[in-house]
Design a protein around this nucleic acid. Structure first.
Lengths: 120, 120
DNA sequence: CAGCATCCTGGATGATACTG
DNA sequence: CAGTATCATCCAGGATGCTG
């Protein structure tokens, strides 16, 4: 058996810690979520994820690709069309991430209240 | 009714986007998780979350406090003792965050395989 | 023990210009 | 359209030293 059976993000040298970092990444959550309902092309993603720069979109997509969460398909057309789609592994991330965004939206008011930034 | 009924993290100017940023934060996940089984003092937290600097621990705890996720109790003793505990709101975050860390550990091997970093 | 203040650096991110 | 390349910036985060 492999000596490393258990991953613990609390250990600084555990790979799962890096993975958690990547997931927690500002853009990853939003990109994965955008792809939930089906494949999208580059420009469509850019529009969905407001405020992301072209560079960060490319970069994050590349990471997601190497991690096996997203597949990238290039169509030999003019003008070029590139399609991004969640892999099965990527799909499996939808549930935990969805739970997170749901929490964020559902409890936003409580947090704002705690901050004192909840306008009357 | 409030004009802002729905929060969407996909909108760059939505407060829930910031909240998601904070939650996804590298240390927040680990700190909240550490407090799951009960209150801890500063030094205990420092030991649990491997690799965190004193500065980041303090800073993150302060943020969690202002956001109403964690309570901070100072005991008037010598030497000083400070206790951190999850608030009910913070507790409600345990489930979604737990799902996330669980995903990270459960699918680590698949990601490593995709990366090609899975040693034979 | 639990912190605050200060300095400092790398890497994350953005802006801009160019291309197959 | 979907990038790449380059430069510029900013700040998260570490290191260190001091304190109630």
């Amino acid at each position: 058996m492999d000596p490393v059976l258990v991953y613990s993000p609390y250990a600084s040298d555990c790979p799962s810690r890096q993975l958690l970092d990547r997931i927690g990444d500002r853009w990853t959550v939003l990109i994965i979520g955008s792809l939930e309902e089906g494949p999208l092309r580059f420009s469509e993603l850019r529009r969905r994820v407001e405020g992301i720069s072209q560079k960060m979109l490319t970069q994050t997509l590349r990471s997601l690709e190497t991690d096996g969460l997203v597949t990238r398909t290039v169509f030999a057309e003019i003008p070029p069309r590139v399609q991004y789609e969640l892999s099965p592994l990527g799909r499996s991330l939808l549930e935990p991430l969805g739970a997170l965004t749901r929490w964020a939206t559902e409890h936003m008011d409580e947090v704002r209240a705690a901050r004192g930034t909840l306008a009357s």
